[in-house]
Amino acid sequence: MEGFIATGLIGISLGSQYTLLALGFTLIFGILGVVNFAHGGFYVMGGYVAYYCSAVLGLPYVVALLIALAATFVLGWLFEVLILERVIDDHQATLMVTMGFYLVLATGILVIFGAESPEFSFPISGVWRVGDVYFPYANMVVLGACLAAIVFVFWLVYRTNVGRSLRAMAEDRTVASALGMPTKILFPFAFALATGLAGLTGALVTPILALAPHVGDPVLAFSFLTVILGGLGSVTGATIAAFIVGLIEAYAAVYLGGSKGALTLFVLVLVILVIRPQGLMGKEVRRA
């Protein structure tokens, strides 16, 4: 029973991480109509920036987090404006440039930091214990930070004027710009927000999971899983799906072992894509 609860906690904290990744991914798809293959790259970059700031420069971890967020936000903004915007109407081209950018980003990190995993561990250690249920403090802090970030994103999307504009642009890009919304700023903002979230997640999570140049690959795969399950472009769907994915993964790892959990998830998602391409919460399939 204790194991069951502890596994559930792990599942929830995984779910909160996936939510942060998936929210960004789904925002980009919903608003720009782009599948961002570079998403995992920003996650890795966030991890390395945080590592460099805290472990190499000796800055406090919180500052390192903010720098990681800022760096991935800025790079995302630049990428959107300089590259993505030029091919935004051609879905295949957007796929190619984000994929290309991921390769460049991952290779750049490899060249700068090397292939070895650096020493990067969470500044807080220790384990919270009730009865026989254990939960590391580090995971608790990450969970709290992720939940706070999720609340912030929901507040931004559903309670602010910026969010209203973003949602209007997700409905129809041309109409939104015809209505005088500052799309020239809002599109890169949306992209940068998403990559910033990925970077922040990387900075928070890589010290407790793993940091290496290639850890973006599974991140991309899990972002795919989550947003397909939740419905591409749906913020609520992505959140629910992320927790489902996190819990399934945690329980499957304990009770099934090996990669059966991942296999279960992938097959589940394949089935969902086929019988309900719009996902659990998605609306009509966006005409691609």
Binding site: F29, G33, V35, H91, L95, A221, F224, L225, I228, L232, G258, S259, K260, A262, L263, F266, V267, V269, L270, L273, V274, P277, V285, R286, A288
Partner: peptide, 26 residues
């Protein structure tokens, strides 16, 4: 899967490749 177009086709083939990879191990 061929009923899916554009982005959805891309995603499903990506997922398929992951599944096959995992199956090879399992």
């Amino acid at each position: 899967i061929l009923r899916l177009k554009g982005v959805y086709f891309v995603l499903v083939t990506f997922v398929l490749t992951e599944i096959v990879q995992l199956l090879l191990f399992e």
